[in-house]
Amino acid sequence: MAPRILVQEAPFDAAAEAARLTEGRTDVGALASFTGLCRADDGLRAMVLEHYPGMTERALTRIAEEAMARWPLSACTVIHRHGRIAPGEPIVLVLTASAHRAAALESCAFLMDWLKTKAPFWKREELAEGGSRWVEARTADEDAASRW
């Protein structure tokens, strides 16, 4: 089954997305889910995500296909938002479904680690006091991605 990849400005419905992966199936014993949300750190007013249309979908598909090749997944969904996102709003959703929990949980963590370092998104923080700054890449994310 091909992974479901969505790159969109609009919010997503995590519960409806999860239901899609198990509806009418009796072979899924484990469904893992990760939602990344916008935090209001240090007087952040909003997060603005820029991406590379075309390459983004391609990169996310490649990462999801890698997960499906490494773990026995029955389904996998990756939704990543772009544009302006307010604190408390979701940014990214990763869902993995498998017969057993290890495959679902591990592949879900793998997908998050890889999409942080291998998908062309850039975050800019809008500050409450005015102005904005680009978020810098973290070495910890590189380290997390290289453990797989």
Binding site: G36, Y52, H80, V92, M112, K116, A119, P120, W122, A137
Partner: peptide, 25 residues
Amino acid sequence: QDFATPDTPVAPGDEVAFFPPVTGG
């Protein structure tokens, strides 16, 4: 639309993009 390194070849007609290290997720 594939990540490249300094020694990746470029040719006429290619689409080449430059950007900071990515910060999605």
